[in-house]
Write a protein that binds this DNA or RNA. Structure first.
Lengths: 100, 100
DNA sequence: TCAGTAGTTCGACAAATATCGAACAGTTGC
DNA sequence: GCAACTGTTCGATATTTGTCGAACTACTGA
């Protein structure tokens, strides 16, 4: 049995790409990359919380983002390990592009 | 004026990702990568031609695929130059993943 | 226990995408 | 010209996705 490195497996490529194929979700991913773990509310994005929650759900369902609770907050982080293992280079290329 | 390398500019990242976020279009991109230039009809994909044409349009509109006519055929090719320049590593990582 | 904070879920509606037949358009060869 | 071939466009319908208020759940601190 291989050693466990990443807590969650990613979805198939097309689903991961679909999750990334939205300017707002791309922004969230960039902020998680630049600022590390963040609670949902700490993203300064002007959008109703139900909409924001929806986008986090898409990111989680695809496996791109991992979430755990800390007190009242849900802490979100990039699933770097699984991304690197399953789709090497993908996150890097997406982050490197400065386009929406 | 910089020297012209790629015939067409790509769409913004989210649009390029959306174009790639479909198993069928991903398959087309893989076949174009593996087999080089191909006419629309030479893809052995069981789908009505209007549907196939739609998917080619999405790929063209995003700038991923370039098309030119040769006789009766439309010849499609990956826009490798523009992809490499605008989103370095993206095509490679997508092609490398063997997932849908 | 109760108020406040953080976030999810539900349900209705809107908007974007996909599917596919039919009609149309460009090219070739007779 | 016209028939055959390749592919696009149109229009109708179906499916998916996004938006957002309201209700709900989980946790904290007084």
């Amino acid at each position: 049995m291989p050693k466990v490195k990443s807590p969650k497996k990613l979805a198939v490529l097309s689903e991961v790409l679909a999750a990334l194929a939205d300017p707002l979700r791309l922004k969230i991913v960039r902020m998680l990359d630049a600022e590390g773990e963040k609670s949902c509310g700490s993203f300064e994005i002007e959008i109703p919380k139900s909409s924001l929650s929806h986008h986090f759900k898409v990111l989680r369902d695809s496996g791109i983002v991992l979430t755990h609770r800390e007190g009242k907050n849900q802490i979100n982080a990039l699933n770097r390990g699984a991304l690197k293992k399953q789709y090497p280079g993908l996150l890097e290329s997406v982050l490197r592009a400065k386009s929406d």
